[in-house]
Design a protein around this nucleic acid. Structure first.
Length: 559
RNA sequence: GCGCCCGUAGCUCAGGGGACAGAGCACUGGCCUCCGGAGCCAGGUGUCGCAGGUUCAAAUCCUGCCGGGCGUACCA
């Protein structure tokens, strides 16, 4: 790719300059960026400004010198070099690079945009991890798409990625028992027997639904068994049904997990105990008030945290330590956790615990996405699980569908709040950004159908054979330029953990395509030109499919 | 109190050291003999929350303040 060649040229030029300028350090990374406007060239670099302070010279003077060397070393792609603004070196290329790039898209097909940046390192992305005592709500949905798309991106840049859902199913946890009791109460109520849902239980509608499911399937047979047995039965059933339901909704949302990891399995394998023992042995714990504490303050936490309660039951933190240790033991080089905003406070202590146990904090990235607020009739709808006032992902999917929901959840950066206005999402469905991008794809498919029905030369010719130099119009060049940006977009979105950047790219791509479509008739009289445009359109379809594929949004052939 | 996130166009948000700060929505006016008008083109608006500092260069980094959100349990 040209980018590579240009960077090499710059690097080579700087190396030559070093003879005259011994005081400069050659930067190990050359920034080659796409300028904000076309009249500033195809690519630009800021090396002159970076070196200015070392040379103690104004950036533009430094730039002049660099340009002089670059010109002498020049490569055939470069038409001219300009210095602009505070000291940018702007490179203007002749169009051959656009044709080379377009051809490479046609040859690579769906492999275009991939790289081996990750060099096959194993990454585990853990996300959603909703507790098995309630339905998947919109917050989980947001975390879910962020995780899913991030995993797609990381895979595209050469990591070996697994997706995991952590199930907080520890039998000792109070929440699951309360959930079991709540279900039990509903089960009795459905049979006309008076029994209260505990005050601190779960009051949502969905608990009644599960109770009904159980009653329909198994009848009243749990009514008369011993209470202890009934409670454990209901706790187990509650969890099983809830997980089943969660899995179903997540699948519907396009989220698949390679592994559903059970917290209880850690307890059964004594991993939680082991983790606690390790922390003890390494001297990062102490006893106080009958509880076992982790010295998390040694790793920047505000206060030390309890690992084992005075009643002997380990805390969530303890199993989380065991869980993360287990992930490392399974051979992952890097762990990424995506948490909801309610787990904010756990970042520091979890990382502290992992350091205490001996892992580098660099190998664990935890990031929290901000809340999703649902607006309905202009009013904020608040979610509270205990009160049963939950906005489920299912409702949203029923209302607006998978593609729109995924797209909307990804439109904002993960650390920005997201207002999801249900009415707006539906009402806007005519001029919705999702449809805008999908429409570009559908239009292309329509052209290709038309071309193959027409049976002209253009339809028969392999696009790789087309004479691309026929593409000279501004709209055509803009489109080729945008297509060529995909690899960089993927790389940046992946390495910065910024899936929302891809949304922007998709919209921009849609925009340049629609402009091209209006400007240039693809199936035109001039057969040579028609072939070239058809090739361009095919490449655009490929790039749209790749982009939408990474986002998990459909690329429909007709709408 | 302490910690983290946010404060950018009328609204919702990008940009997170570099070029005159961008996009969508909304508003106004144009564009269908011809591949799908779910489209295109044109129009303008900003004390980048405030005040200092670092830098050749700050919306971006640092400090303080103001406003909003979320955390801050021997809950999960």
């Amino acid at each position: 790719m040209v980018q590579r060649q240009l960077i090499d040229l710059i690097r080579k030029s700087l190396a030559l300059l070093k003879a005259d300028w011994p005081e400069i350090d050659l930067p190990d990374e050359i920034q080659l960026e796409t300028p904000p406007r076309k009249d500033l060239g195809d690519f630009s670099t800021n090396v002159a400004m970076v070196l200015a302070s070392q040379r103690k010279q104004p950036p533009r003077q430094v730039a002049e010198k660099i340009v002089a060397v670059m010109t002498a070393e020049s490569s055939p792609e470069i038409e001219r070099i300009e210095i602009a603004g505070p000291g940018f070196i702007n490179l203007f290329l002749n169009d051959s690079w656009l044709y080379t790039s377009l051809k490479s898209i046609l040859l690579q097909g769906s492999a275009f945009g991939k790289s081996d940046l990750g060099k096959g390192a194993r990454v585990l992305v853990e996300f959603v991890s909703a507790n098995p005592n309630g339905p998947i709500h919109i917050g989980h949905g947001r975390g879910g798409v962020i995780g899913d798309v991030l995993a797609n991106l990381l895979a595209a840049v050469g990591y070996e990625v697994d997706r995991e859902f952590y199930v907080n199913d520890a039998a000792t946890s109070g929440q699951m028992l309360r959930f079991g009791r709540s279900l039990e109460a509903r089960y009795f109520q459905l049979q006309g027997i008076d029994k209260e849902v505990p005050e601190d239980g779960y009051h949502g509608e969905y608990v009644i639904d599960i109770a009904r499911e159980i009653l329909d399937a198994d009848g009243p047979r749990y009514k008369d068994i011993p209470e202890a047995e009934r409670l454990s039965t209901f706790t187990a059933l509650a969890q099983e049904k809830m997980l089943e339901h969660q899995r179903e909704i997540l699948e519907r949302f396009g989220l698949h997990f390679d592994n559903w990891f059970s917290e209880q399995s850690l307890v059964d394998a004594r991993k939680v105990e082991e983790a606690i023992e390790t922390l003890k042995a390494r001297g990062y714990t102490y006893e106080q008030d009958g509880a076992l504490w982790l010295k998390s303050t040694q790793f920047g936490d505000d206060k030390d945290r309890v690992l084992v309660r005075s009643n002997g039951v380990p805390t969530y933190l303890a199993s989380d330590v065991a869980y993360h240790q287990d992930k490392f033991e399974r051979g992952y080089d890097k762990l990424i956790d995506i948490w909801g905003p309610d787990h904010h406070g756990y970042i520091i202590r979890t990382k502290a615990a992992m350091q205490a146990i001996g892992y580098s904090p660099d190998r664990l990235d935890i990031f929290v996405h901000q809340i999703v607020r649902l607006l309905s009739d202009g009013e904020l709808v608040r979610a509270s699980k205990r009160a049963g006032d939950i906005i489920t992902l299912e409702e949203i999917l029923d209302e607006v569908g998978r593609d729109v929901t995924r797209f909307f959840f990804l439109m904002r950066s993960h650390d920005s709040h997201l207002d999801f206005d249900l009415e707006l999402a539906k009402r806007e469905s005519q001029e919705n950004p999702v449809y805008y991008v999908q429409y570009a794809h559908a239009r292309i498919c329509s052209i290709l159908r038309e071309a193959s029905e027409g049976g002209g030369k253009a339809a028969q010719l392999d696009s790789a054979e087309a004479d691309l130099t026929a593409l000279t119009q501004e709209a055509e060049r803009d489109l080729m330029r945008k297509l060529a940006e995909l690899p960089e977009e993927i790389e940046v979105a992946a390495t910065e953990y910024a899936p929302h950047r891809l949304i922007r790219y998709a919209q921009e791509l849609g925009s340049v395509f629609h402009a091209f479509y209006t400007e240039c008739r693809v199936l035109c009289e001039d057969e040579n030109l028609a072939c070239a445009r058809l090739a361009l359109v095919r490449a655009t379809r490929t790039v749209l499919q790749i982009t939408l594929g990474l986002l998990g949004v459909d690329a429909p052939e007709r709408m």
